[in-house]
Design a protein around this nucleic acid. Structure first.
Lengths: 147, 147
DNA sequence: TGCTAATAATTAGATTTCTAATTATTAGCA
DNA sequence: TGCTAATAATTAGAAATCTAATTATTAGCA
């Protein structure tokens, strides 16, 4: 087993993702939908650009995910204040129920993933991953500015 | 910013992946290819089932990625010992050169990601992520056995 | 030996994802 | 006010990904 940071992040993320999808198989949710539901659960009425950024996908990708969610009646999209350029996304009651289910599944998996961790270790891991995140985001912004 | 384990793993993994792809844009490698090159760099001659497992993708997915890599002459596939069921995958010289480039890029990004980390902190993070990995793999195996 | 299981890879079809280009709308400023 | 920039979302086309089914081959065992 390789122990590079990238390999471990990939492995942990993908195993987590696969475990989630297995756990919610009965819901019929497809792989792109849970993260959007989970974000909307705490940010109902967000615009698509914001959702895409939070879910780390491109706006073009979100368009097709939302289309599927709209067909399943998990969300609705509305315009506000006569601004025809931005679309605000809302969970339906059905969508809220699925979001709850997804969140519960996330919590179960996370609890298992951290078995044997003390509270301090959990906090240390979270702090480390946040620092890694900041380091990479800073670099990305710098690179963009350099153009 | 959410601070759940899953969210941080996803964010870190995806930003890492995106940074990598930006860094090797000039190579023309597509998004599924770097991880396979990186694995083969240390496991030349692996069979497809093994590569798929190491890269955390399904064998069916690997089939199409390898097809693209074969067309670019990054790899060749051979049978061994009259076993027609297994295909062994080898890097071409061109593939080896690309693999080196990918590895160098991984190292650069990782160095940046860990800026400000002491050696002890790096080791602690690696150990944490390995424990998370083991916890999730154990659970997955248990679930399978329960059937 | 010969039938059945298991195994490795592929194919088929759908979803997710990306980048680049397009459309429609809004904002900035001369 | 009116032209130009910027912005939000979508479309188009390609690649990656998955599950389920299929093909071909090998292994196990009666």
């Amino acid at each position: 087993m390789k122990e590079t940071l990238h390999y471990l992040l990939m492995a942990d993320h993908l195993i987590f993702q696969k475990t989630l999808l297995t756990g919610i198989k009965d819901t019929g949710l497809t792989s792109g939908q849970p993260k959007v539901l989970d974000y909307l659960k705490n940010h109902d009425g967000a615009v698509q650009k914001e959702i895409a950024a939070a879910c780390h996908i491109e706006p073009a990708t979100l368009t097709s995910v939302l289309l599927g969610m709209e067909n399943k009646e998990l969300i609705t999209r509305k315009m506000h204040n006569g601004n025809r350029r931005s679309l605000y996304v809302y969970l339906t009651d059905k969508g809220k129920a699925f979001a709850k289910r997804v969140e519960a599944e996330f919590e179960t998996i996370e609890e298992n993933a951290l078995l044997g961790f003390t509270e301090q270790e959990k906090e240390a891991l979270t702090a480390f991953l946040t620092r890694v995140n900041e380091n990479m985001r800073d670099k990305g912004e710098m690179d963009n500015d350099e153009v």
